[in-house]
Nucleic acid binder design. Structure first.
Length: 421
RNA sequence: GUGGCUGUAGCUCAGUUGGUUAGAGCGCCUGAUUGUGGUUCAGGAGGCCGUGGGUUCAAAUCCCAUCAGCCACCCCA
């Protein structure tokens, strides 16, 4: 029982788990590159107000989930809880507002002080894409198309459903909000405790309540559809027909509400039912108000973020790791020679595990344990003859070959080579 | 922040209505093999029973607190 544990909600990612995570991230950025997007990395912490002002005073992220601290200069800083706000800040900081459209992708850790559960950590990883400066629904379509290709390449498209909604423009949302408050106020005493709080804070939230009684009340609530301005309505219709044009399947869910204040018009989530309560793998939407809210010019944007850990839970690695060749030297002269041979094989892209000390038995045991294909043995006998012994660990056969013939002899172990990138 | 379940060896877990030296499997180490792994056999190490308090002649077992893990609510990727 070790007393030294990782901080709550964080964990170490080791070996195969880490490879899988790298694989998922790599396939995401490959897709993003094929869409012509550029990589960007913003700092892991920002001034607190970057998040405070933009994510919404009523959002849980701002209210209770931010890792905020004062640095030695007394400035209030916050570990980033999401990626979009930092990127909007970068647009303004870099004076990039005249360079639109900006097409960016990013990946890295995010931090939220939440109670951990399945699919939810305090430090987790996201990959995201943003398309900034295009007001046309074609931008929404492109970004959703990229997300679809990403999930398709991982073999997850059949595992998820794309849900879609519109939050309309500012005007639509304002009138709808008022009518919701009106409607729900009549049922106030029947609503769940949580929804009563939502009624004053964020009435749209009541729409996706999980409470069964709430759901019944919600079913009679006014539909957002009737409150959309003609502009917002046609924006949504255009976007849907853009998705149809690309053969992207989706489900319209009028109760899909995003948590962050900066969203407008399109919102979407790719949801799996195999991950317990936290089934959203990837989610995003349009945030036309964000950059002006931060004091920049009025530039629209649309994007999404994917939860790497959640996606990893559903993803299989398509290829197996190459099996190593173990190089075992006996005695000091043998070890020196072994180090040289290991380097030589590594330069030929073999995956090589060099064994230190401990004799032949221990060396072979280690070779077996790591699942090596072969072992190369170097003792006194081999050294005096300028040879090495190559032992096949699957069938136990071994032959002594001269150093000059080693490469051709190892040709049968091609599978131990790492594939060039 | 709220609730439910769970904390016993490195790992997965047994442990009877409270009763003497707390067990198994896997893993680890040593030997059978002084230069041959994976199989087999023989032996060995490893536990403040999450932590602190309480009840009792006696606590891994009952009670309280606390910490941690998991799952759910909330919320979100």
């Amino acid at each position: 029982m070790s007393k030294l544990l990782p901080v709550r909600g964080t964990h170490d990612i080791i070996g195969e788990d880490f490879r899988l995570q790298n694989y998922v991230i790599k396939s995401a950025l490959t897709v993003a590159e094929t869409f012509g997007y550029e990589p960007i990395e913003t700092p892991i912490f920002e001034s607190t107000d970057v998040y405070q002002r933009t994510l919404g005073e009523t959002s849980d992220i701002v209210n209770k989930e931010m890792y905020t601290f004062k640095d030695k200069g007394g400035d209030s800083l916050t570990l980033r809880p999401e990626g979009t706000a930092g990127i909007a800040r970068a647009v303004i900081s870099g004076g990039l507002q005249d360079n639109t459209p900006l097409k960016w992708y990013y990946s890295g850790p995010m931090f939220r002080h939440e109670r951990p559960q399945k699919g939810r950590l305090r430090q987790f990883h996201q990959f995201g894409a943003e398309l900034i400066g295009v007001a046309d629904p074609a931008a929404d379509v492109e970004v959703i198309s990229m997300a679809t290709e990403f999930l398709r390449n991982l073999g997850l498209l059949s595992e998820v459903k794309l849900q879609l909604n519109t939050l309309g423009d500012f005007q639509s949302r304002k009138t709808y909000r008022e009518s919701l408050i009106n409607y729900f106020s009549d049922f106030k005493d029947n609503l769940s405790e949580e929804s009563q709080v939502r009624l004053t804070r964020n009435p749209l939230r009541i729409l996706d309540s999980k409470d069964s009684n709430d759901k019944e009340i919600v079913s009679g609530a006014p539909s957002f559809h009737n409150f959309l301005t003609p502009e917002a309505d046609s924006f949504f219709k255009n976007m849907c027909s853009g998705l149809d044009n690309l053969g992207i399947e989706y489900l319209s869910n009028p109760y899909l509400v995003r948590g962050l204040d900066y969203y407008c018009h399109t919102t979407f989530e790719f949801i799996s039912d195999k991950l317990g309560a936290q089934g959203t793998l990837l989610a995003g939407g349009r945030y036309d108000g964000l950059i002006p809210m931060m004091g920049g010019q009025s530039i629209p944007g649309v994007g999404w973020a994917a939860g790497i850990e959640r996606i990893c839970m559903l993803t299989q690695m398509p290829t197996e790791e190459p099996r190593a060749i173990c190089v075992i030297g006996l005695g000091e002269p043998g070890e020196k020679e072994a180090a040289k041979i290991a380097l030589r094989l590594r330069r030929s892209k073999f995956k090589v595990d060099l064994i230190y000390k401990g004799g032949l038995k221990r060396g072979l045991r280690r070779a077996n344990k790591i699942g090596a294909v072969a072992a190369i043995l170097l003792g006194e006998n081999e050294l005096t003859n300028n040879n090495v012994t190559v032992r096949n660990l699957d069938n136990g056969s071994q032959t002594e070959v001269s150093l000059s013939e080693l490469d051709s002899h190892l040709a049968v172990y091609e599978s131990a080579k790492l594939v060039a990138e």
